[in-house]
């Protein structure tokens, strides 16, 4: 099978063709591995888990951003593969792109649980009650593996590199929708910005390519709604009922071990 890879070595860019023996069960990542191990040791690409849960191997395969380890050759239904680095990113070498901006955007939306009383996040004996229904309001958005593929698909990122992008906005919604979180008002000024939610015109490309079904486009539209509600009707997020706190007796910190050769009642 013919594989065409977009290469870059810091100075020049070029297309390079390889001829690889493939099995139909191989993934694109297997093919790249074969090239790197058997033909060309200089080819650079990222990988780690090989099972679609770490987010390392995002690249553009036959014109569509995808995870290489999740794309089987047989699914492509073509007899040659074209592999490029992710669109909209700076390329450092071959298929390796610079993700620092992406990571910083994620951080800028404060993606952590915020409580009015931060002590509640520190003391061990407390626990939140979250019903399965409440869980459902945000778990989908927690599936994000930070692969950054959605930003490569997004037409808005293509014209505004400062746009926060589907991943960060999706994560902002993930925390806002979390019944344990109380940070909506802290985040709103970051999101309600010309590079924030309002830049999104709902092309849905992010949701289309997301390998984990996170559906960031949905999260962004929900965010817009919540922000409008807040600004126009002065309504704080009512989407999810806040979670209840249960106080539990603290577990004894390493009490005395049981007597030597302690026997369980009834045995185990």
């Amino acid at each position: 099978m013919k594989v065409r890879i977009r290469r870059y070595d810091g100075q020049k860019e070029w297309w390079q063709d390889y001829e690889v023996d493939v099995k139909s069960s191989d993934t694109v990542l297997d093919v790249l591995n074969k090239i790197r191990e058997k033909q060309d040791h200089t080819l650079a690409f990222r990988l780690s888990c090989q099972m679609g849960s770490c987010g390392s191997c995002g690249m553009v395969i036959n014109g569509l951003p995808a995870l290489a380890c999740q794309t089987r050759i047989s699914e492509l239904k073509t007899d040659s593969i074209r592999i490029e680095p992710l669109y909209n990113y700076k390329v450092i070498k071959d298929l390796v792109v610079d993700l620092n901006e992406f990571v910083n955007k994620h951080r800028s939306v404060k993606p952590w649980i915020i409580r009015k009383n931060p002590e509640e996040l520190e003391e061990a004996p407390i626990e939140f009650k979250v019903t399965p229904e409440q869980n459902l309001t945000f778990v989908q958005f927690d599936y994000c593996i930070m692969c950054g593929i959605c930003l490569a698909a997004c037409p808005t990122v293509a014209i505004d590199p400062l746009f926060l992008g589907p991943q960060a906005l999706g994560q902002a919604y993930r925390y806002i929708a979390d019944p344990r979180d109380e940070g909506f008002e802290e985040r709103i000024d970051i999101l309600d910005d010309s590079h924030g939610v309002w830049r999104c015109h709902f092309a849905g490309a992010c949701s289309y390519v997301c390998p984990k079904g996170v559906d960031p486009a949905k999260a962004i539209q929900f965010l817009k709604k919540e922000i409008l509600k807040y600004r126009l009707l002065h309504k704080k997020k009512a989407a999810t009922k806040p979670a209840e706190l249960v106080e539990k007796a603290p577990p004894p910190n390493a009490p005395k071990p049981p007597p030597f050769d302690f026997k369980f009642e009834g045995g185990v």
């Binding site: 996040l121 407390i126 626990e127 939140f128 009650k129 979250v130 019903t131 399965p132 925390y175 979390d178």
Partner: peptide
Amino acid sequence: TQEIRLIERWGVPWNRREDGR
């Protein structure tokens, strides 16, 4: 035990019983 509760409050979506525990 303490660690499970701590990371619960840092956002882990543990599967829950009907009553939220």
